[in-house]
Amino acid sequence: MAETGLISLGATDLLIAAALVAVAGAVSLLLGLRLERRLGLAALRTVVQLLLIGHVLRWVFALDEAWAVLGIMIVMIGAAGRAAIQRPSRTFTGIFAESFLTLLLTGLVTTLTVTHFVIGVQPWHEARYVIPLLGMVLGNTLTGISLSLDHLLEALDRDRSTVEMELAHGASRWEAAQPPVREAVRKGMIPIINSMMVVGIVSLPGMMTGQILAGADPLEAVKYQIVVMFMIAAGSAMGSIVIALFVYRSLFDKQHRLRHERIRTR
C-alpha cells in the first residue's frame, strides 16, 4: 500500500454517499415520521457548511498569514462560546463574554502548548495544525463548560437557601460557593474522563480514523490521538474551572452575598 494512499473523491462519489441519506429518508416516509424535509435540509446544510469551511481553510492555508489564522480562531471561539451557553436552562447578564473568555484562554493555552512544545509547528500559525487542533479542543471544552455552567446555575438557584444559610452563619462567599463550584467542575470533567476510558475500545476517534484514511501509519495516528485526548482533558478541566470561577465572581458580590436575582430562567 502506498504511503500517501489518499483516494480523492469526485462528485459521483458524493452522490453515491447521498444515496445513503436517501435510505434514511425512505425510512421516514415509510413510517410516516415526517422527517424528510428536515433530513433534506440537514443534509443540504452539511454539504454547504462543509464546502464553505473547506474553501475558507484552503484560502487560509494558501494565505499563510498570522492575522488570517488568528481571525479564523476568534470566529471559532466565538461560535463555541455561543454554543456553550445554549444548553443551560438558566442564564445571567454577561454570560457570553465569560464563556468566550473561558474558551479563548483554555483554547489558546492548550492548542498553542501542543503546537509549540509537542509538535513543534513552525511558524506558530501553521493553519494545517493550529486550526484542526483548536477545533477539537473547543468542541470538547464547550461541552465541559456547558455542563459546569448548567450545574452551577442550577445549584445556586435550587440550593439558594443552603448557600444563604451558610453566608448567614459567617461563611465567606468562597466558603459558601465551594460545594456547588466543586460539583460543577466535577460534572464538567466527567465526559472527557469517560471517553478517555473507552477510547479505542468502544470508539475510534474521528481524527485518528481520518488520519488512517488519509494513509497515515495507525501507530502514528494513535500518537496524535493520545496528544489530542490529553489536550482535550486539559481543556475541559481548565474550562470547567474557569467558567465556574467566572460565574462565582458574577453571582457573589464583595459584600459576600449571593445575588440570586441575577439568575434568569429562560
Binding site: 437557601s161 443552603t162 448567614a168 452563619h169 459567617g170 459576600h256
Partner: peptide, 24 residues
C-alpha cells in the same frame, strides 16, 4: 459598620435564622 467588621464576621455575630431551615 458591617464593612468595618467584615461581612462574614458581622453575620456570625448577627445571625439570621430562616423560618424554613436549610441544611448542608
Amino acid at each position: 459598620s458591617p464593612e468595618q467588621i467584615g461581612w462574614p464576621r458581622f453575620r456570625r455575630r448577627v445571625i439570621y435564622v430562616h423560618q424554613q431551615p436549610a441544611f448542608v
